[in-house]
Design a protein around this nucleic acid. Structure first.
Lengths: 130, 130
DNA sequence: GTTAGTACTTACCTAAAGGAAAGCGCTTAC
DNA sequence: GTAAGCGCTTTCCTTTAGGTAAGTACTAAC
């Protein structure tokens, strides 16, 4: 977002826009599995069963749905290799790689958040038993 | 995350951890309104009705629930000022400011995603009418 | 020909998210 | 005393997400 001469209120504009931007981003990325799934495939292409194994807890039904949805939205590609039997490989598109920075900051935050939670649990123990 | 000598497979470790990190982050931040709400209050403290006005479409019930949830998780604070009548102001905590980078990257991505969608819609028009 | 693996689909169900509309207790303004 | 604003709560309802369990079509190996 670039503030130009027409932007009389660059700050306010930027603020209300970033809200809209975030809501637009969440519109496509919302849900428990979309970002983890994209991240997993950005790290390396995988087969159905491999993904299922990595995202512990995802059911085949939900995984199949998410994969279809992400393919429609150009985040992943379903490649069929003519081996016998055929190998079906899911891979991240170039477009899903534009999410790298988002996933990096989110991962960093998730890590420090877990640290914080651990700390506060330790603190509670001290308060109760210390 | 720091790779130490014990990390024989720093890459693989980092990869599987970032998946866990992202899933942990999403566990607290998931939903249509949490990040927009935090962003709105990081930008400036606000009253109930002001938030409702800014996040077009949020119902008072959902807003009240989200505010309670975010307060419990230490992202926001409900301040009561002894004016007559009392003013109730919601403000972002220091902790919610640790999300700034996440919200910045997400906002940037949301912006460029909207541009992409606009472009692809233009492209479709050219294909159909051009 | 039976077993196992891959990549799903189908049917069924529950829980949670989310929305619409109305109301409530308070206060101030007219 | 009536209307209007604030900060919600309550009720009722629909939609969506997500899970379980079973099954299917194909192939290949034993």
């Amino acid at each position: 977002m670039i503030s130009t001469a027409e932007n009389i209120l660059p700050d306010k504009n930027e603020c209300s826009n970033s809200l809209t931007n975030v809501m637009d981003a969440l519109y496509v990325l919302n849900g428990k599995w979309k970002l983890p799934l994209i991240l997993s495939l950005v790290q390396s292409s995988k087969r159905f069963n491999e993904i299922q194994h990595e995202l512990r807890g995802i059911s085949p039904k939900v995984l199949a749905n998410e994969l279809k949805d992400l393919e429609l939205n150009d985040f992943i590609r379903r490649q069929v290799y003519p081996t016998r039997p055929v190998s079906i490989i899911y891979e991240a598109t170039e477009y899903s790689k534009t999410l790298k920075e988002v996933m990096r900051t989110l991962s960093e935050w998730g890590w420090q958040h877990r640290e914080k939670i651990k700390d506060s649990m330790r603190q509670e123990k001290v308060e109760v038993f210390g």
